[in-house]
Design a protein around this nucleic acid. Structure first.
Lengths: 131, 131
DNA sequence: CGCGTGTACTTTGCGATGCAAAGTAGGCAA
DNA sequence: TTGCCTACTTTGCATCGCAAAGTACACGCG
């Protein structure tokens, strides 16, 4: 058990590439559709504009989180997006941290909090927070 | 797939002010310490630099998510940070959306991640992607 | 056949923002 | 007093999200 002064709320596992809202949407969509999704479907599912999705996909591809397969369907360009294996792994890691955040918050917010780990210098102003 | 046209993965509840990693750290720390936290404690808990914390606190205060009480303790400046009531409410709303993200991702065959925050042990082995 | 319209993306531009290094202020020890 | 330490704040830069504009191609219509 490490000391109580460690940065236990720093959440370093929240990779910035994944943590962005739009990309989180994309990755969640993709993990929910393991066969992949076409660009327009992804666009609609995530509520993104064309440009936005294009850019975020480029970032995700650059980070080796998704793979883009560009082909043609009925003579129309069709980009199929899928998670890479390492992308899936990294996303699951990220999710585990997210769960930790939720647990940390709920242990005080939704339930009786009894774990005050940083008991330094409280003023105890007699301020009761709203129940 | 009930309705493929709705943007059910857009997660519009992920307020950008809250969703930032550093601020998420701060808010989680604060919700776990309802009596408030002093600047240095917050700094250490979140693993932030002085400048970083200062800036993020200013943003959070501007958004009426936290309240800053500047005073003196033992003749030293001491800023006490607490969640505002509406800040707590908005953070809990945000958390609900986070939980939804986790659920959406896990319902797809992602395993229910345990309490191991460094879940790097399994790679993609147990969850081969369908081609 | 050419022209406009619609889909499927990409590129560009800009305003916002995270981040860290440098700056300020005051207590306290020597 | 001098110098160091804590407790913040300000500044500057590089990144980034976002949306409007741009490109490419297929199809329908006169």
């Amino acid at each position: 058990m490490p000391d109580a002064t460690e940065a236990r709320f720093s959440y370093e596992g929240l990779d910035r590439v994944i943590h962005e809202r739009a990309r989180l949407s994309v990755l969640t969509s993709l993990v929910a559709h393991p066969r992949g999704l076409a660009f327009p479907d992804l666009k609609r599912l995530c509520g993104l504009t064309d440009g936005n999705l294009s850019r975020h996909l480029a970032v995700l591809q650059e980070a080796d989180l998704v793979a883009l397969e560009k082909g043609y369907d009925h003579n129309r360009p069709q980009t199929l997006c899928r998670l890479t294996p390492s992308g899936r792994a990294r996303f699951l890691d990220y999710l585990a941290v997210l769960e930790q955040v939720v647990r940390d918050a709920q242990s005080a917010g939704g339930k009786p909090a009894g774990k005050d780990t940083t008991a330094s210098g409280k003023k105890a102003s007699g301020l009761a927070e709203p129940a």
